[in-house]
Design a protein around this nucleic acid. Structure first.
Lengths: 131, 131
DNA sequence: CAAAATGATACTGCTATGGTATCATTTATT
DNA sequence: AATAAATGATACCATAGCAGTATCATTTTG
């Protein structure tokens, strides 16, 4: 069980890089080496970030990407939501007949609690914290 | 990101069933309906549980499976470890050059903290809690 | 010997992940 | 106007893990 997939991982690196770079825009070629990923793959991730509103893009020579929000307003939970999908709550373990003998779905409630606390932790980490 | 996979899910159901059943052994055919899974698949899971020491098995007619530990000594984290693999800590996001400009790998530490707290939550849930 | 049970293992289908490749479009520079 | 530098949009692919089925061997009871 990985908490972060590659997209989120690389996106975090790139956003930190952009947060540090004091430039209006940063092109992918300037980031890909330090981020440690191929240009085309990073571009695909950046395009997702653009569509999700984390960055805006400038096409053409001299263009690139720039943060569309301040680093402290980009939370890890946001990146996960945009690039990795929502936390999927496990289906009830006790959907079956077992439930008839039991007041509530204990495991479901326990796991739901765990997941909400996990989500809260992810919300507490921002790009600013990492930069 | 699912916290529990199917194996863990079904295993939890089966172990709860066994904890409630006051019998020396429980055969798969007696469990599969309430667990909500096919016999062969549940058998495969039970075999894993047997190898991992959660249950012991009795072959032959009248046989089946029995808990090898008390329910309060079977933790969700144990099941995850046996059926789903260990929590894989994400590789350092800042393995690359970025680290040269930074004292420590902040994201790595943050995620490691999150994961250890997650593991602790899983350790706090036992079959007894669910039964 | 037959029936009931697990042990072991091989196989399959699907989906998500982690990419690569290609072509189109926009913009700055000369 | 031509060229180079950049993103936009898509299509494609390879691998691994997940979920599940199928089969045969072995053990035990009656």
């Amino acid at each position: 069980m990985k908490l972060l997939n590659r997209d989120v991982d690389y996106a975090a690196r790139a956003l930190v890089f952009m947060a540090r770079a004091n430039r209006p825009t940063v092109p992918v070629v300037k980031m890909r080496e330090e981020v440690g990923v191929s240009g085309p793959f990073l571009r695909k991730i950046m395009q997702k970030l653009q569509k999700a509103g984390f960055v805006h893009s400038v096409k053409g020579k001299g263009g690139g990407f720039a943060l569309a929000r301040r680093p402290e307003n980009i939370r890890l939970s946001d990146l996960i939501g945009a690039l990795q999908g929502p936390l999927k709550f496990n289906e009830c373990v006790f959907k079956q007949k077992l439930c008839q003998h039991h007041d509530a779905c204990v495991l479901r409630r326990r796991i739901a609690g765990v997941e909400s606390r996990l989500a809260a932790e992810m919300e507490g980490i921002t790009i600013r914290d990492l930069a």
